[in-house]
Amino acid sequence: MVDYDLNGVEEDMSFLEMLDVLNEELVAKGEEPVEFDHDCREGICGTCSLMINGQPHGPDSRITVCQLHMRSFNDGDSIVIEPFRAKAFPVIKDLIVDRTAFDRIQQAGGYISVNTSGRPVDANAIPIEKDMADKSFNAATCIGCGACVAACKNASAMLFTSAKVSQFALLPQGQVEAAERVQNMVRQMDLEGFGNCTNTGACEVECPKGISLENIARMNREYLSASVKG
């Protein structure tokens, strides 16, 4: 841990802008800047990933770090910033962690196979109940930031994996590979070294997109059903 004193922080600055100011000061003094991940800065890409005062994405709910503003803190506060910590998220440098474990879980089954030649059927031609479409869409809003893993006392990736399983499991297009998908994605999740879910619900509370624990229950059902059917 390194302590930095920072002056001139405006309450309207975003948290990442505050880090920009810090890094500009460090560079001006000829010191190494603090490395941190960021990209879209509008809460969509899931790239920013900081543990701020013991909470992923900081103290406010339903936002990512880039949407967190310095008005959420008091003047003179000491703020503890750490990278997301999990065996499956090795630290690359300073506050940047390697979250490619999520990519590998996706690659293990987070897709549907569709013929692209001949006469592909328009996806919109398949009627889907509004309730199912909404649930699938909500699951698909997961941005894969890793806050669920960071918040979980067990560093479990069940919420992420279950969202990626659910977004397909709820749609007719996802049924063909349903059993194979859930088994392969859970297998990959376990191989990556994430912990086991103990249903504390911390992931749901800290998820910037509000992904529900219902998805974990759905994945458990899908997995059990796939295992029983062999």
Partner: peptide, 30 residues
């Protein structure tokens, strides 16, 4: 077994971890 595996899943612990902000004491200390 679950406790040991879960412990290993986070080799380096957080300096500051505010578990009470998002989960009950009971659920975190089974």
């Amino acid at each position: 077994v679950l406790e040991l595996q879960n412990n290993r899943a986070r080799g380096v612990k957080y300096v500051k971890f505010k578990g009470s902000a998002n989960a009950s004491w009971v659920s975190r200390n089974m």
